[in-house]
C-alpha cells in the first residue's frame, strides 16, 4: 500500500529524469544497435533465409526478440547503475532516511528502469517500422509483457546493485548470465531448429517465455502457449519485486 504517494512520485521523477538527462547514453544506443541488427540479420541475411513455414518473414520474426532484448538490458542497466552509484556515493541515505516504506522505496527506484524499458521498446518498434510493416495483433498483451519484463529486470538490476561490491561486479550478471540467456532465448531463431538436447535445455531458459510472449503480442505466433508465458512472467515479476523489497527490509548491504 502506498502511504506516501508524493514521496514515491519524487523518487520516481528523480530516477526518470536521471536517465533522460543522458538520453544519448541511455535511450539512443539500443535504438542504433537495433537498426544494425535489423539491417544485418533481418535484411541482409534474412532475405536469404526461408522462413515461410513459420508464417512470418525473418525480419518480422526477430523484431519482438530485439525489443525484448533491449527492454531487458535497459531496465537492468538503469536500476543497477543508479542504485549502485547511490550506494557508492552513499546518497542512498537520502532515501533510507525518508518516511517511505520499503515497498515504496523499491517502487520509486524501479520507476526509472520501467520508464526506460518502455521508451526503448517504443523506439525499437518505431525504427523497425521503417524496415517492414509491423502490426500489433494483441496490444494489451504487448503492454503486459513490456511492463512485466521491465519490472522483472529493474528489480534484477537492483538486486545486482545491492550484491555488487565494485563496478566490475556490477555487470557480471548482465554479461555472463542475462546476455547469453537472451541470445539463447529465441531472439534470432525458433526453438525447433535447434538440436533436441538444446531444445530441452531452452525450456528452462526464462528468456524463452518472455521473448515468446512478446512475439505472440506482435505477430500472433509463438513457440509456447501464451498462457504459459503470461503466468511465467507474472510469477517472475512478483518474485523479483518481493525479493527486492525483502532485501531493502533487511537492509542487505544498505544498513550496517
Amino acid at each position: 500500500m502506498i502511504i506516501n504517494p508524493i514521496g514515491v512520485a519524487a523518487l520516481s521523477q528523480r530516477e526518470i529524469l536521471r536517465f533522460l538527462s543522458v538520453a544519448s547514453q541511455t535511450i539512443f544506443p539500443p535504438i542504433v544497435t537495433s537498426i544494425l541488427y535489423l539491417y544485418i540479420f533481418g535484411v541482409a541475411i534474412g532475405q536469404r533465409v526461408d522462413f515461410s513455414y513459420f508464417g512470418l518473414s525473418y525480419l518480422n520474426f526477430i523484431i519482438p526478440g530485439i525489443m525484448t532484448m533491449h527492454i531487458i538490458s535497459s531496465a537492468y542497466e538503469n536500476t543497477s547503475s543508479s542504485l549502485f552509484i547511490a550506494r557508492w556515493h552513499n546518497h542512498i541515505q537520502e532515501v533510507l532516511l525518508a518516511p517511505l516504506s520499503y515497498f515504496e522505496m523499491v517502487l520509486g527506484l524501479l520507476a526509472g528502469g520501467v520508464a526506460r524499458g518502455v521508451l526503448v521498446a517504443v523506439g525499437v518498434f518505431t525504427v523497425a517500422s521503417f524496415f517492414t510493416p509491423v502490426a500489433i495483433l494483441h496490444p494489451c498483451v504487448l503492454v503486459y509483457f513490456v511492463l512485466t519484463i521491465s519490472v522483472i529486470f529493474s528489480c534484477a538490476g537492483m538486486i545486482g546493485a545491492l550484491w555488487a561490491e565494485d563496478f566490475s561486479m556490477l555487470n557480471l550478471w548482465h554479461i555472463y548470465l542475462i546476455v547469453p540467456a537472451i541470445f539463447m532465448g529465441g531472439v534470432f531463431h525458433p526453438l525447433q531448429i535447434l538440436p533436441r538436447m538444446v531444445q530441452v535445455i531452452s525450456v528452462f531458459n526464462p528468456m524463452y517465455y518472455l521473448v515468446s510472449g512478446m512475439r505472440y503480442s506482435l505477430t500472433g505466433v509463438s513457440d509456447v502457449p501464451l498462457a504459459s508465458c503470461a503466468v511465467f512472467s507474472f510469477f517472475m515479476t512478483f518474485s523479483f519485486f518481493f525479493v527486492t523489497v525483502y532485501l531493502f527490509k533487511i537492509g542487505y548491504k544498505l544498513r550496517t
Binding site: I6, G7, A10, Q13, R14, E94, V95, A98
Partner: peptide, 9 residues
C-alpha cells in the same frame, strides 16, 4: 527532491 521524499509538494 529531499522534501518530496518527506511528502512535501
Amino acid at each position: 527532491y529531499q522534501a518530496g521524499y518527506f511528502g512535501i509538494l
